[in-house]
Design a protein around this nucleic acid. Sequence first.
DNA 1: ATTCACCAAACGGTATACCGTTTCAAGATC
DNA 2: GATCTTGAAACGGTATACCGTTTGGTGAAT
Lengths: 220, 220
Amino acid sequence: MEISPSPSSPRSDHTAELLRSRILDGVLDPGTLLAESAVARELGVSRVPVREALFALEQDGLVAFSDSGRAYVKELSPFDFEELYVLRLTLEPVAARLAAPALRENPLALEANIRATSKAPALLQVTQLDLDFHEIILEASGNRRLLKLWRSIRHELALWLGRLHRSKQLQTRGTRSETVSSHEALVTAFKTKSPAECERLMRQHVLGWREWLPTTEVQP
Amino acid sequence: MEISPSPSSPRSDHTAELLRSRILDGVLDPGTLLAESAVARELGVSRVPVREALFALEQDGLVAFSDSGRAYVKELSPFDFEELYVLRLTLEPVAARLAAPALRENPLALEANIRATSKAPALLQVTQLDLDFHEIILEASGNRRLLKLWRSIRHELALWLGRLHRSKQLQTRGTRSETVSSHEALVTAFKTKSPAECERLMRQHVLGWREWLPTTEVQP
DNA sequence: ATTCACCAAACGGTATACCGTTTCAAGATC
DNA sequence: GATCTTGAAACGGTATACCGTTTGGTGAAT
């Protein structure tokens, strides 16, 4: 029996994709009601695929449901961010350790990502490529459930970072070069160090990433 | 705006509940096709709530979809179990550290769980209460996303353990007393030790739990 | 006996329709 | 002016129906 993690659904996939980008791009403000009927009318599809798309987006953490079953664009608080940060700090070092053997064999994807980052025109692309870099590591970990967890966290992080960026609360100075050099250090570690050392370095990397962001002054 | 993690859906919730128990109880064998029409007909509801229930069960890891969109009762391999084990080993020690302050204040739920475990009549109840014990800790961690992750992992673990139990591959001797004493040790730690020490002990606990299970001889 | 072509039944994706509930604002009451 | 009432519109939950695709077996061809 062939198994894939989810069914292929052109309409609902397309709907989810479109809503996802609108949410991440900030076209839809936090708290906006996503009524099935309205979205369906606008996109020219029925409510059924919209409904499925909303469920998918809930899983991504981009949408939340009220008690009455209404879907809203998710509002993220500093408290939410701290939760996400704890998860990163927990999962990513382990992923780095698991991925180390595979990445030692083939670090090409990581290196290509670094080259792309060094040429990225804008801060938003850098943060996007930064998340891509980490996703490559999660993929290389070989743990499908770990990767799935990362993806759901990633969407929420992208949402958080996008909102910070739009409200001009992300510091720009040196971001690209800092990102590139610290990613280069990680790649070197993958190629030459032990998995345990890679784990330790990844932990430091995530800790350092946290320092870049505006303080949220919330106890995790 | 009041937000809850998921919409309340009597029909679809009930359907999911029923299918979940049938899968966990082994009434439905791994690989069994769960056709929307058939399930709907049997339960006397329409396909819509069944569809939603199947999506929910996929998130629990109890159901997988084929490329053509058909839902099947999930088949778990030793490889899957290793993935789950790695996640436990990663998440639970962190949860223990985060939960330590709250559990030091109020360990009543844990202690009640231990009393119930010591009176549990059968092995299957013991393993169920064991998972409950850990879920209490995850709840006390205060990290909602961490708890959500644990719940999805928990369902898959329960599925795995249930299948082992039915195929008589779980050792029974001493399970209850071992579980009780090791949980008691954890509660003592929560009441008297530092969060960091609780984290370390939880890690040992999960490592020890792994030893109880039949070896799967698969590299994680 | 094996493989291939074919077809009918079954299934999933989606559209539409119905119904009870929730929502929210206009109007009534204090 | 603030609060409560109320009713129409909007919304979500669900049932039913239509359609193209997948599936699994039957019979033909080799």
